[in-house]
Design a protein around this nucleic acid. Structure first.
Lengths: 215, 215
DNA sequence: GACGCTAACTTTACGGCGGTAACCTCACGT
DNA sequence: ACGTGAGGTTACCGCCGTAAAGTTAGCGTC
């Protein structure tokens, strides 16, 4: 079953030019997930999938990078939501933190190509700490996700489960550890990885023990 | 000062066909470091820098990916050597392990594009545990580097500095943590990172504390 | 010392890419 | 009925990786 070029799209009505934009985003996201590599998804493919010609894409996105960015910004919000949901089902803040770690790795393995674009390709977008610590409604999904992690660390520290004199720094450590595991699992599928649950749980244990001690 | 196309290379003598190969590798490595992105380095550029036409490259490498792989395999050996050297200057095995962590991040930041190719792009090469634990002389540089890390963990555990009932698992945790930090630093230069030394040292401390506890 | 063989390249060309300029076409407000 | 501008298309550029075929130079042979 090939992807199949959509039949030529019906022309949008006068005020409905923006109707095309979400269709492009959806098609780009689907193709990205299917092909598994940003470079294997071309503007022409996306246009074909939507039922439109390549230049039409450029009416809605300045270039290919911006389109891919937009796709992944969407997914970033889903990522954040997945972690929030995983944490929400635990009353104990330490357990909630651990649940975030598990959900992190699971999301990455379930959406490897999107994860790769979000976290493994270079972004020059500048951020400042203020936005990260208390993001406004206009902030990018990434900033919100990080703020949620910092807040989760603070709750665990508040409950006395861990020592985190510098919650941002601790959040960075956790991010590094779980991003490291997730990205290696994605990049090196041929590595003789031990059982995934063992790997994740032992990493959680190690991080927890490390955070118990005062830093 | 542009790179400048080399004057047309003199044709190699009869038995010296392999003379071109290392020149291609060197030029490709230099260009990769200069441009900072695999996709920004083209076969045509490399050929031009060597003073040869593009198809000549394919007499020595099956395709572009293989060429880039070969370049990075070289660099992987240098990476391993850098960690070994950093560790060698410490008698205390725990200090040696910490030195490896510092050297890891430093290498990644000094050679971001090579690091990216080595650890951040997908490789399907299969490995088995036997090769990783005791690599032969023909083993790839990556296997040797990992074996060196496991050995370093075992020495630290042997000295009683850390508890590592499963040295391979502990090595994976360390790898995940430092790869995570290094790759995020590379991928997200716009993030408001705290002072690099603080970041690395505190990550070292956290990992050390975590490894102190029995896992 | 001319001859042919083959290693070591070059020439040419193809299909596809991201991106752009110029043109078309049709629904709508007047 | 008609001009206009939103919502596209056609046609093109210069690059890419690379397949196929052609060319050149050094060597062993007679």
């Amino acid at each position: 079953m090939t992807i199949g070029s959509a039949p030529r799209r019906a022309r949008a009505r006068r005020g409905e030019g923006d109707r095309l934009r979400p269709e492009i985003l959806a098609a780009a996201g689907r193709l990205l997930a299917e092909r598994g590599d940003e470079n294997a998804v071309s503007i022409r493919m996306i246009a074909d999938a939507v039922g439109v010609t390549p230049p039409s894409i450029y009416l809605h996105f300045p270039d290919k990078d911006a389109l891919i960015e937009a796709v992944c910004e969407e997914r970033f919000a889903a990522f954040d939501a997945a972690l929030e949901e995983a944490a929400a089902s635990h009353d104990d803040p330490l357990e909630a933190l651990r649940a975030r770690g598990r959900a992190y790795v699971r999301f990455a393995l379930d959406n490897p190509e999107h994860y790769r674009v979000i976290f493994m390709t270079r972004h020059d977008r500048a951020m400042d700490l203020a936005e990260l610590v208390s993001p406004g409604p206009e902030s990018r999904a990434g900033a919100k996700a990080f703020a949620h992690l910092v807040a989760a660390v603070e709750r665990a520290a508040g409950a006395g489960a861990i020592a985190a004199p510098n919650p941002v720094l601790t959040a960075l450590h956790l991010w590094a550890a779980f991003h490291g595991l997730a990205s290696l699992l994605i990049s090196e599928p041929g590595f003789p990885w031990p059982d995934l649950d063992l790997l994740v749980e032992s990493l959680l244990d190690l991080q927890e023990q490390g955070m118990r001690a005062r830093t």
